[in-house]
Structures are given as structure tokens and as C-alpha cells.
Amino acid sequence: MTVVTETEARAVRRTPPPGRPRRKISRESAAAWILVLPFVLLFLAFTAGPVLGSLGMSFTDIKQRDLRTPFSVNGVGFGNYVKAFEDETFRKAAFNTAYFVVLGVPLTLVVALAAAVLLDRGVKRFQALFKVGYYLPVVTSIVAIAVIWRFVLAPDSGLLNTVLGWVGIDGPNWLASKTWAMPSLIAMAVWRNFGSAMIIFLAGLQGIPQSVEEAGQIDGAGSWQRFRYLILPLLRPTILFTSVTTGIGYLQFFEEPFVMTQGGPLNSTISVSMYTYNQFGFGNYGLATAMAYILFVVIAVITFIQFRLLREK
């Protein structure tokens, strides 16, 4: 004869019959949902909702005049996307953006890595001062940076042309030249943004054990060999992070041409983000959102490629 205790009997009564799921929500789960509910509501209202709404707008002919009667717009399918690719100015903006990214991202990473190595290996005193100095342009207003760079790149009395004149070189009108306007913006972007990547590279370098480099030194490897075959492979996660974040930022570059050149001369510095912004200003909402989603797809594809190429092996 089996004796059932009172505790076992209560456990049997609380156990739901087979086939019926337990519907009772624990206090922890209820508390978690209550705490996360404000974020979910805000996310749906101010992020997911507008994103889905703009995606729907990209398949319509909605313009500024249609805001009062949004349900009277007509669907155009992929017409806005086709129109964007047929737009000569959009193709020019896409080429300018690719030019800016292909040159700007590697230059920014190389300068940032070089500065990080110098701070980690060469500069021991006043290291904090150098960090602040290199990082200061990152948090400085683009308006202040534009004033500085306009003074540097001014055609007649600019600092750069003055220095070039000392060695007999007649410098061009940098920001008004179709040849030199984009390289000038790239130089400004590298100067402005390399401090952020430098801080991350410096953290990655300081996280590598000193014993790794000492082992290479014992094996007879030179300074460059140790850096090339020991340090750089260990920096792959850091390089991946900085290349992805820098690439995403440069693909969306807007402030530099908007403040410095207004997209000129002759659209030689207009970017996809700036041209999309102009289309919104003209009231072509359907076309503008289509351009924005083209840029989104490009960013997603390039980011995926970066993860495939730079992931840890």
C-alpha cells in the first residue's frame, strides 16, 4: 500500500492534466512585460510604424499636395525605383557616394590604426592629452569644422594655398573645383572621424597580451612581422567593427557637402543622402523614400560583405 503525503497531493492537484498547456503566467514574466511595454509601444509608434509607412509610400506617387488626402494617392509599383535609377543626378550622387566610401573608409582606418599604434607603443607621457586632441573633432559641431576648413581651403588667403605658395605651387580653388572638391571633403571627413576609430583600435591593442609579441620577438620576428602576422590577426574583430560603423556612416554622408559645397560644383559632391533630402524638400515623397530604401539595401549588402570578409577564421 502506497502512502501519499499531503505535499505530494497538493503537487498533483496543481499539475494540469495531459494535453492542456499551462496558462498561468509567473510574476516574473508579468513584471517583465509590464516593464518592456513602454518601449514596445514607443518602438511601434515611432520606429516600426514610420518605417513601414515610408516603405508603403515608396510604392505610391504621393507628393506634398497629397498629405491632406493620403488615401487618394495611386500605387505605382516599382515605378519610383525605376525612376530613381533613370535619374542622371541620382546616378551621379551614387557615384560620388561610392567614391567617398572607397577612398574615405580605408584612409580613415589606416590613419586611426597608425595613431593608435603610436599612442600605444610610442607616446607614454601626455597620452590622455593626445586622445582628447584626436577625439575632439568627432564631437565638434560641423559648422565649426566648416569654418576651419573653409579658412584652410580658401583660394586666395587660405592656409593650404599659402603654404603651397612658399614652395612655388599655385594651389587651386579647392571647393570650387570639380577635380578637388570631393578629395577636399574626404580629407575633412578623415580628419573629423578618425579619432573615434582610433579609440577603438587603441582599446583592441591594449587588450592583446604582451606575451604574444614577446613570443614573436623570441622567435626572431621583426617589428613589422610581429605587427603583420601577430597583432593584425588578433585585431580582426576590432577592424570589423570599425570598418562596419565607419562604412555605414560614410555611405550616409550628408553634412560635409551640405555645409561646405551644397553639392557643387555641378553636382560633383552631391551624395545620395543629400539628393534624397532635396527630393523630400521638393515634395516628391514617393521618389525620396524609394531612394532612401535603395541606400538601405546597399548598406545592408556592403555590411554583409564586410562580415563575410573580416569575420574571425
Rank of each mutant, 00 (worst) to 15 (best):
T69C: 06
F100Q: 03
F71E: 02
F100R: 05
A84Q: 06
D66L: 06
P70K: 02
G122P: 07
V101H: 05
F100H: 03
D66C: 05
L113P: 06
A114G: 11
Q64I: 14
P70C: 02
F59H: 06
A115F: 14
R121K: 14
V102T: 07
R125G: 12
F71R: 04
P70L: 00
V110R: 01
N80V: 10
G122M: 05
G79N: 04
V76L: 12
N80L: 06
N96I: 05
K63F: 07
A94M: 15
V123P: 02
S54L: 15
V73C: 09
S54V: 12
F126I: 10
F90Y: 13
F78P: 02
L113Y: 03
T108N: 13
G56S: 14
D87F: 08
A112L: 03
S54I: 10
G104P: 02
A93W: 05
S54F: 15
E88R: 14
L55G: 13
F85P: 08
A84E: 08
R91I: 11
A114V: 07
D87N: 15
F90P: 11
K124V: 13
P70V: 02
R91N: 15
D61G: 09
V82Q: 07
R68S: 12
M57I: 15
A98T: 12
G56E: 10
E86S: 14
G122C: 08
V76Y: 03
V117N: 04
L109G: 01
G77M: 03
M57K: 05
L67I: 09
M57L: 15
A98Y: 07
D87V: 11
A93I: 03
V73F: 00
A116G: 08
R65W: 10
L107F: 01
T89A: 06
P106I: 08
L118K: 04
R91Q: 14
V101M: 10
L107C: 05
V117D: 00
V76G: 09
L103S: 10
L55K: 04
T97N: 12
Y99D: 09
A116E: 00
I62W: 04
V82F: 01
F126A: 12
F78R: 03
G77N: 06
R121A: 07
Q64C: 07
P106L: 09
D120Q: 11
V117R: 04
F95N: 10
F100W: 02
K124M: 13
G77R: 03
G75C: 12
K63W: 11
K124H: 14
A94T: 15
G77E: 05
G104E: 01
V102S: 02
F71V: 06
A114P: 07
G75R: 15
F95H: 09
A112K: 00
L109M: 09
G104L: 08
L109W: 00
N80Q: 06
A84V: 08
N96F: 04
T97L: 06
D120Y: 03
R121G: 03
D66F: 02
G104S: 11
V123W: 00
V73R: 00
A114M: 06
N74I: 13
V117H: 04
M57N: 06
V102K: 02
N80C: 10
G122W: 04
V102F: 06
